[in-house]
Simulated scan of single mutants.
Amino acid sequence: MPALKHLASGMLFLSTALLMSACSKDDNQGKARIQVALTDDPGDFKAVYIDVQEVNVNYNDSDDNGWQPLPGMKKGRYNLLTLVNDKDTVLADAEINSGTIKEIRLVLGDDNWVVTNNGDSIKLQTPSGQSSGVKLKINMPVSGGILYKLLLDFDVAKSIHEAGNSGKYILKPVIRTVLEAQGGSIQGVVLPAVLPSAVLLLNGQDTVASTYSGIGGAYFLKGIAAGSYSLHYISIDSTLKPAVKQSVVVETGKVTKIDTLTLIR
């Protein structure tokens, strides 16, 4: 497998600083991974553009405290009418703390537009009360090491209202939320632990995830879609032979624990 060998070589020649980090790092097993996706129920327009700026989570019962922005947010304008018939787009893909998510807040900018069936582009007006964002109740637990997908299902027909016969349109978002576990994690130990080992998870020839073993040889791969994979172990110590474990099954919402593996010379 030339591609695997090439990748392994690149990993083995990382800088000394990175290797020291790998030996001492905390794998943050308490972190979950969440993907926030936007989809739409169709409405009677040619296009509906919303200006997405932030997605925040809140673990507290208090609506005024505890809001945390999700990193890696893909800001921009999204045409909701291209996200119908089970299509969606990922707004954020981030690690979050485990615990119970109480609320999600979708923060919109002011560049929101509707294109009517007559071809007129009209800027959407947003009530001042929504300037702090659209708050959505979740109240669901997330567990460390598990991949979740939060689907924001935007109902265009109920969210856009014409203001009398003025030709103006008001945006009052109506959004249904669905939070589901999408994948699992892999946990194990590779020995000897004097030097770290590269641990690569492959689906056929494609590398799905990779990490280095840490203190005591422990490794943890998280946010993995359900399926069957192969695990490849390559020690920094070139005198140790690489090893492969086939048919590693990852299940949604679970941590797959792998028996301790010892590399030999």
Rank of each mutant, 00 (worst) to 15 (best):
I122M: 14
T116P: 07
G144V: 10
Y59H: 10
N56T: 07
L151Y: 08
F45V: 08
G99L: 08
V84E: 06
P69Y: 03
L108P: 03
D120V: 03
K149H: 07
M73L: 12
D61F: 07
E54V: 06
G119A: 14
L91N: 00
K74H: 14
N117K: 15
E95D: 14
D153H: 15
L150K: 03
P141M: 12
N97F: 05
N118V: 07
I101G: 00
D63P: 02
K75R: 15
G99S: 10
K149Y: 02
G129L: 08
D120C: 07
I101P: 02
D51C: 11
I122F: 03
W113P: 04
D86A: 13
P127C: 11
I146G: 03
V114H: 05
G109S: 14
A92L: 06
E54A: 15
D86Q: 14
L147P: 00
D63L: 11
I50M: 05
G144T: 10
N117Y: 10
Y148W: 13
L83E: 00
Y148P: 02
G145T: 12
P42K: 04
L136K: 06
E95V: 05
Q68C: 06
S132P: 07
L106W: 01
K123T: 00
T82G: 09
T100L: 11
G109W: 02
S62V: 10
G145R: 05
E54P: 00
L136D: 06
D120S: 14
L147Q: 00
Y59M: 08
Q125G: 11
E103A: 10
V55C: 08
L136T: 03
K46P: 00
G144E: 09
D153G: 05
N139S: 15
S98R: 11
N79A: 09
L81P: 03
K149L: 13
G145N: 12
N60E: 15
S98F: 05
I96H: 02
L152Y: 06
G99N: 14
V107C: 08
Q68W: 04
K102T: 04
G144D: 04
T82R: 14
D110Q: 13
N117R: 13
F154H: 13
L108N: 05
I146P: 02
D93K: 07
N97T: 12
P71F: 13
F154W: 10
D64L: 12
I101Y: 05
T82E: 14
L108F: 15
D86P: 09
Q125H: 10
D51L: 11
G133F: 01
G76K: 13
E54R: 15
E103Y: 14
V55E: 04
V57K: 02
R105T: 07
L136S: 03
Q53D: 07
V142K: 04
G99E: 10
Q68F: 08
G76T: 12
D153K: 13
P42A: 13
L108K: 08
Q53R: 04
V48H: 11
G133V: 11
I104W: 00
N85L: 12
S121M: 14
A47H: 13
D153F: 04
D61V: 06
P69D: 06
R105C: 11
S62F: 12
L124Y: 06
D61N: 14
L80R: 08
V48K: 02
A92Y: 02
G66P: 05
G145W: 04
S98Y: 01
T100W: 09
G133E: 06
P127F: 15
P42F: 04
L124N: 01
S98M: 10
D153M: 04
S128C: 02
